[in-house]
Amino acid sequence: MSESRLPESLIQSLGVQLTPVRRLPPPWMRTIGWLVLVAAIALGLLWHYGAQHMIRRWVAEPDIAVAGIGALITAVSAAWAAFTLGVPGRSAAWAWLPLPGLALWVGASGLGCLRDVVVPGATVATAHQSGDCLMFIISLSIPLSALLVWLLRRACPLRPVLTAVMIGLASAAASAALLEICHGFAVAVTDLITHAIAVGIVVLVNALMGGRLLQPALK
């Protein structure tokens, strides 16, 4: 009988402390909330740089537009997966959701590497310009990741590392998509490597910190 007394007394104690709670909005709605900030940054960049330059590049080099769309799809699906993984009982298979967008993004960017062969006159990034891309992606990923972490701390991610990888992927992909607005040159091997390094750093840092940052409810 003593076995059942322990939960009973605890249940009564928890019952005494019960207060009404505001339910967590569904993952898709929380994803939209985060995308509003991404859209606000995009509008700010478009206001500053204008859309003409981006559209000219896309017309001249359609694979860059495809890569940008791939990055955007990756950002949306990775953020959605992160918010879904933040709810107990949801399948870990949600982590596969960003894969098609990622394949499109990486595939189209890879095609861009052939640009200086296919289009000999194209402007290709120098190592210095690639460094600027790296800084752009990382510096924009920090606030976007921080917002996702803050939003997910109200949830309960039971797989913190996987969720943190999704956060890193979403913020890095969103940053890369935003970079398209002010990118001044074609995608080359150096540029692709820079993107990969930036995305890798963002994903890794998030994964390393995810366990500590994402689970206040489980401590």
């Binding site: 928890l14 709670v21 505001r22 967590l24 933040g86 107990p88 949830a155 309960c156 409810a217 489980l218």
Partner: peptide, 11 residues
């Protein structure tokens, strides 16, 4: 049970 209490808003 303690965790359920803390995260009951996620259900």
């Amino acid at each position: 049970l303690l965790t359920v209490h803390r995260v009951r808003h996620t259900y």
